[in-house]
Write a protein that binds this DNA or RNA. Structure first.
Lengths: 234, 234
DNA sequence: CAGAGCGGCTCTACGCTGTAGGTCTATGTC
DNA sequence: GACATAGACCTACAGCGTAGAGCCGCTCTG
């Protein structure tokens, strides 16, 4: 987790490795993955890198830049096929890859979905726009006119965000308990007002994210196929 | 915006109106709506209510409780029909109502989608679980067995969250400019790498949230109808 | 080889945050 | 009238982001 102060002591022999934006962001991501967003403070990050907190300002001018950088770093892990022609399997593959990334960096998901609310499209880090362009390419290559590709992209990515937000919801209230109702804390709910929710305890406990994603994609794709057929034949 | 210190000076005659959780949360929501989430600090909120910052602790034990309370307050505005039997129009109506609320309280949307990542289902404020129960009821009333209703609910609500996150994205980078490309800041993108995105400037600028929501719902519903028909006939 | 320039870093300091703990006071109850 | 108590206030503390100035050692120039 922590990094030794440096390979070379400043007073002594050597040039110590200078920080880079990449190293800073990588350490920031590591920190967020390990301890959550609240742990990401300048002092803490500086300590992790063996530098003074202020040293970071050279590589990330403010906290927002740090957050945007983390998002960029994570989205860079996403790999989007670009050759093939079957848009559905390509979108499906990408969706599963996005899910993999979301599960690997759960605390970053809230940043991914939330940062764009503060940063205008055109000013976002290029790394966060690259998946958008690549997916537009996938769709246009498959024959969608660009404006339609954009609408499909929006629907798809919104669905994906929604899925990850659902999958990452906290469910277990008390890991000690054995019955689903108690584990999920659903016994707190007044039975008269929440009969259905309470009755679904075991279904909630048995949530299967991958299956649910596939079902969702199936719904999305058949919906798109028939809706688009209608729209295009008019 | 601000509230006069109080109707009665403490030293003088009268009992001043005591704070209530409702008054505190209402003021908090007001503040967030007017100035964004960052403006929501205890001292600021206390000032707004004409009380000391510490007085708020009696009604919201910590900042998380304040945020959860705001979410609860906003979700309480959501009204979900409960009599009728056509689940699609009911979900559609609710979706539009949710959109209305999201547009009315844009800064709260990030809380709505994000808070559940920190609070286990069973421990959430009842007000945030009520829409869930009501929608489950809509679906079961329409004939869905509860476990399936849950899956449909998840898909639906995920889609809804995704839509709002998309609609609330910041787009305009420079309101002064007249051409769409410049207004959105897309001229910053290297043309070789982002030809499609740059080409979609006018489509991006012409975004119509309500239409897009309806199209999305149409896709979702037809997808659901045919997928469910398949699944149920097996 | 001397000296200048400068990039990378550190130090100090400021105003702000959430919140713990103690205290004051006006009110309701016997 | 005496007392208990709920509600609000005051003080204080550690930790936050970040502005501004200064230090140190490399590299480039003559």
């Amino acid at each position: 987790m922590s990094v030794p102060p440096d390979s070379s002591v400043p007073g002594k022999a050597g040039a110590r490795v200078p920080l880079t934006r990449e190293r800073v962001l990588a350490a920031a991501l590591q920190l967020v993955d390990d301890e959550g967003l609240d742990a990401l403070t300048r002092r803490r990050l500086g300590q992790e890198l063996g530098r003074d907190a202020m040293a970071l300002y050279r590589h990330a001018p403010d906290r927002a830049a740090l957050l945007d950088g983390i998002v960029e770093l994570v989205l860079d892990e996403l790999d989007i096929p670009d050759g093939g022609q079957d848009w559905q399997t390509q979108l499906s593959r990408t969706a599963h890859d996005f899910r993999r990334i979301g599960l690997a960096h759960p605390h970053v998901v809230s940043l991914i979905v939330t940062r764009p609310l503060s940063t205008p499209l055109g000013l976002r880090p290029l790394g966060t726009l690259r998946p958008l362009e690549r997916l537009l390419r996938v769709l246009t290559d498959a024959g969608f006119p660009p404006p339609l590709a954009l609408r499909v992209y929006r629907l798809y990515i919104g669905f994906l965000y929604g899925h990850m937000l659902t999958e990452l919801q906290e469910m277990v209230a008390d890991p000690e308990e054995t019955s689903d109702l108690l584990r999920l804390g659903l016994h707190r709910l007044p039975p008269r007002e929440f009969p259905l929710l309470r009755g679904l305890a075991s279904d909630l406990a048995a949530y299967d994210g991958e299956a649910e994603l596939d079902q969702g994609l199936a719904v999305l794709f058949t919906g798109l196929r028939t809706e688009l057929a209608v729209a295009l034949e008019v």
